[in-house]
Design a protein around this nucleic acid. Structure first.
Lengths: 196, 196, 196, 196
DNA sequence: CATGAATGAGCTTTCATTCAT
DNA sequence: AATGAATGAAAGCTCATTCAT
């Protein structure tokens, strides 16, 4: 009678689990540092301490690796809850500001935009993984305010979200810096524009 | 005795002035289409109908050529004058929207951001030639409104400008499209936030 | 005291005999389709449904596998017996023609010739397994005719065999096609040259 | 009035004419020695003493280079004229024999056959440059004999050519050697088969 | 014994840059 | 001054072979 094993082990040499994480981590860093087309698989392999075929076994092409690396980004920032709409907006934007100002935070955005024509998957994934999450948080804060009648009717929440988020891009593009008080100033104006 | 010419002409064959313009034009287009690192001097030379040394004679390196190409951009958009602050803001932003939605309009922004670490001159020049001009126009419109007491005191004009401009970036990053009514919606909210 | 088993079975898991056949079959096909140096063990393994070490356990190298694959070829064509020398020659050559015109029939010949300098075993085996068999059939037909005094004396049977067989190669090299009547025309001329 | 130069010199750095010949020569040798897929441009470049881009400037791909190399082969063998049909056939075939027995003479044929499925240009060119020439010489000798009524009517000259040429291939495939008397034996049989 | 993972070396091709005319 | 030719270095990707389970 055959025994029933409790935990099966897959056949063959097990994959180096750490290598996978290391490769993705290095790829993401180089993607941000160097941009997509400058990022070389040679460099990724060398820095991750693996050979190139080890990479190609897992991902079928450079674009595949890059998108996989992007996929690892998780805006796991939890939704804030300060008790007031203005407080929530400000706190959320301050989180956003911090992530943008991380080294090469804006470069990554730049590269996915620059590659839109050649490697559109990058922008698509970036949207899905990073952009959408942040926007949804802001949307939700504003929708709650709308439901509790804090906002004047007819106002476009989408436009508001674009302004709040976009202001950081504009500011960075103008000076590569963002002052600590920036989020507060934005919310101040937008709130005046939205509330009753 | 040597004669003294009234107007000196440098010795040797004069440079082809048209070629220079053509090279810069092609370089700028490829910079936007392909991004900095994908842009090849071979392609620039071929499309401009010159040889590569002809390029190197004028610019010392690829980065030098790219920055020169960026330098040629002139936001020659004249300041609008519709008679009202809201009208001026809206018209200016509509111009901005048009230029962003031109083919590869956002790619160029992407590439200068992506290259910030490797070729910071690109971002610097982009700022100087394009970003600054647009921002100054908006600033001026708002400053005039401030002087005519249309605005409530203490509000940050800089933040307002960032929101108005940045909203387009945010919108593009979220969906690669910008609806025609977008400028109007933005101004609506911001104006409510700024005015008395 | 140890018992003496009547039939010894080697210890451990027995080799999968079907896999062995499958591997050789796939290898032979790829050898003909792609040529020796294009044939990849990855492809062989994948198409045979085994892993590469399974191949290396049986054959020590790519060359070893290729020669083993060639070894499996058996020209099992039975000798024909039409009643006349001319009939036998024609029928035998028609068989030959069919095998040459099979997909990649000539490629395999090409590959063993091309590899003569690098992997001489291939040509040697090809001779032993395929070439020799066909030639012996023709030789035997002619020898029988010689013994029954159908041929004029002193003629080189070897030369005749070379012409009959070689004409197909020459024809293929000249046009990649062989008309159905080809065998008959050859035998016609050769027979005129050989017979009394 | 502009002077009319007798010999214009093309602009730019002149191409290294010897390099071109050297590259083709090396390529042809490696093509014969190693076969098409084994032949590497690295090896060609190294042995020709040039860099790889120097090759790519002249030929757009590996296949292009290989076909160019094949194109340089000129069967410049002049038509023989011994005074008799048998003498002409024998002399022509002896020339053929010599070229086949040159180092890697048969390997080259092997590689163009082996590559027929992947790189058909090779076989096409080989036909055009080498095969056709030799066949035409033999054809012409036989046609002249036909016109002077030396041959019996209705015999296929094409079949005869295939036998004469092909016998060498068959012989090589069977033993990698060709005895000096081979051509004579062939012509002997074929002539008996063709003549009145 | 068979597996999937890993590797060093190689492939064809392209690039930014410099040389020779 | 302008050209076409040349180059070293690198790119993305694949292969025959070996390792670890």
């Amino acid at each position: 009678m055959a025994s029933v094993p409790v935990s099966v082990r897959p056949p063959g040499r097990p994959r180096d689990a750490e290598a996978e994480a290391r490769i993705l981590q290095v790829a993401l860093r180089l993607l941000a540092e160097d941009g997509y087309s400058r990022m070389s698989l040679d460099a990724v392999a060398a820095e991750a301490g693996v050979s190139k075929p080890t990479i190609y076994r897992r991902w079928s092409s450079k674009a595949d690796l890059a998108t996989a690396a992007l996929r690892t980004i998780q805006t796991s920032e939890p939704a804030v809850a300060t008790g007031s709409t203005v407080g929530d907006l400000t706190a959320t934007l301050q989180n956003f500001s911090r992530s943008l100002l991380r080294p090469n935070g804006m470069s990554l955005i730049g590269t996915v935009l620059a590659e839109e024509a050649h490697t559109p998957e990058l922008l698509a994934l970036f949207r899905e993984r990073l952009v959408a999450h942040r926007r949804q948080q802001l949307h939700q804060i504003l929708r709650r305010a709308q439901q509790s009648k804090e906002l004047r009717p007819g106002v476009s929440l989408d436009a508001a979200v674009n302004m709040l988020v976009g202001a950081f891009y504009a500011r960075y593009l103008a000076s590569s810096t963002v002052p600590p008080s920036f989020a507060k100033e934005l919310v101040d104006i937008v709130w005046k524009g939205l509330s009753k």
